[in-house]
Design a protein around this nucleic acid. Structure first.
Lengths: 112, 112
DNA sequence: GGTTATGTGCAACCAAACATTGCAGAAGGA
DNA sequence: TCCTTCTGCAATGTTTGGTTGCACATAACC
């Protein structure tokens, strides 16, 4: 009974820098490798590689606009990612609660 | 308004293998590097290193039992991790909903 | 039009992290 | 005791996140 997660999608959002990039793209409604790198502690080239990763898993889309490449978040795919996070989190919570419940039951049995 | 997450904790649960290890430890109520590697597509040594990572961030604890090292999940710390996952997920959801609401408002304005 | 500035992409190189193989030591079971 | 099994350490390979350096294209300015 393992949680079904898309490993590619998960590892894409697993990187801290990429998570912050998604935050920035959401906040500003889009951006380029250059504008993002201005607000991040990494170089433009590193950002460009991350954008490539995000693009491959469909979390962002590119639109050439003159000499710049404009990136924007794919709403549906990010929603999928958010759902996976919530699912894993709640699965763990459920298991922890079940374990706790069993432990308490054992405790009550011992007390008798 | 960035989401506050513990990067060490996040990167610990960010690795797919470590996530599956936590799942297995939860399901079986504990285990050793050897028992885990039997049910994972990696070697015992790789599992041992991952257990070291999980131990350093407090997600698991070790108990020497004879010649074997028994690991079990730390309930409180895993609950913290689950909460962080849920928080990031719900933050993204909220932002997506807000953007969608604004887009719809613009749409209504245009229609008039 | 020509020059300068800005945005992009490619290649080489570095460092850290994930994973492997190989070996040696310690603890149970026959 | 002998053999199995579980563990830990060291050397090595491979992937990934990050950097620097350079070349090229497009836009802006004179």
């Amino acid at each position: 009974m393992t949680v079904a997660v898309d490993d590619d999608l998960w590892s894409a959002i697993g990187d801290p820098t990429r998570r912050r990039m998604l935050d920035l793209l959401l906040a500003d409604g889009g951006g380029t490798a250059t504008t993002l790198s201005d607000r991040l502690p990494v170089t433009r080239q590193a950002v460009a590689k991350h954008l490539g990763v995000l693009d491959r898993v469909g979390l962002v889309h590119v639109t050439p606009a003159g000499r710049e490449m404009r990136y924007r978040v794919d709403d549906a795919q990010l929603a999928r990612a958010a759902a996976q996070l919530a699912e894993v989190g709640s699965t763990w919570d459920a298991r922890l609660r079940r374990i706790k419940r069993i432990a308490e039951a054992v405790q009550r049995t011992r007390e008798r």
